[in-house]
Amino acid sequence: MSSISTAARTGFARGGYEFRQTLTTPADLWQYIFPTVALFVTVFFMRGATVPGTDISLGARTLPSAFGMGIAFTGLMTVAIMLVTDREDGTLLRAKATPNGMSGYLVGKIVLVGGMTAISFLLQLVPGLFFVDGLHVDAVGWFTLLWLVPLGFIATMPIGAVLGSLLDGPRNMGLMMLPLIGLIAISGIFYPIMALPGWVQGVAQVFPIYWLGLGMRSVFLPDALTAAELGHSWRHLETVGMLGLWAVAGLVVAPMILRRMARRESGSAVAARREKAMQRIS
Rank of each mutant, 00 (worst) to 15 (best):
T156P: 14
E238L: 06
F45M: 13
A227I: 15
T144N: 05
A262L: 01
L221M: 15
F73V: 08
M261Q: 10
L83F: 04
V206W: 04
S268L: 05
G108C: 04
G160I: 10
T74A: 00
G115F: 02
G141R: 07
L180T: 15
R235V: 01
T36V: 15
L251F: 11
A139S: 12
S103E: 10
G174F: 09
F130S: 05
T50V: 15
M173F: 14
H232S: 14
L221Y: 10
G101P: 11
S65N: 06
F153A: 11
N172W: 13
T91S: 04
P127K: 02
H136K: 11
V37M: 13
Y105V: 05
P222N: 12
Y105H: 07
S282F: 07
G75I: 01
W246I: 07
G267V: 05
D86G: 02
Y32C: 12
G188E: 04
P179R: 09
A272C: 04
Y191K: 15
F207W: 11
L180M: 15
G134V: 05
G70Q: 05
G11K: 03
A49H: 13
V137L: 01
G164Y: 10
L178E: 09
L163C: 13
P35F: 00
P197F: 01
A249S: 11
Q21M: 06
G141I: 05
S282R: 14
R274E: 11
E275T: 13
R20V: 07
T10G: 03
R264A: 04
M242P: 06
M242S: 05
P35N: 07
T78G: 00
F207L: 12
P35M: 03
D28R: 13
V253P: 06
V248M: 01
A80H: 02
G134Q: 03
L258C: 03
Q124A: 06
V140D: 11
S233P: 14
Y210W: 11
L106A: 06
A95K: 07
R20T: 12
L63G: 04
M176H: 11
L145H: 06
G53L: 10
G241Q: 09
E275W: 02
L237R: 11
V162A: 10
Y191Q: 15
V240N: 01
G160C: 12
G182T: 14
G152K: 08
I119V: 15
V252H: 00
I56P: 07
G213N: 09
A227T: 15
Y105K: 04
G114W: 02
G104T: 04
E275H: 09
G53Q: 10
I4W: 04
L183V: 13
Y17V: 13
S2Y: 00
F121I: 04
L178M: 15
L163D: 08
E88R: 06
L76T: 07
R273A: 12
V219N: 09
A60Y: 03
V126W: 00
A195M: 14
I184N: 08
V107K: 02
A161W: 12
P26I: 07
K276G: 10
V253F: 02
E275I: 09
S218H: 12
L92G: 03
G244P: 11
L106K: 03
W142S: 06
Q21R: 12
D138H: 03
T36S: 12
T62V: 10
G134D: 02
L163M: 15
I181E: 07
T6K: 09
A118S: 08
I4G: 01
V126H: 00
G15Y: 01
T78R: 03
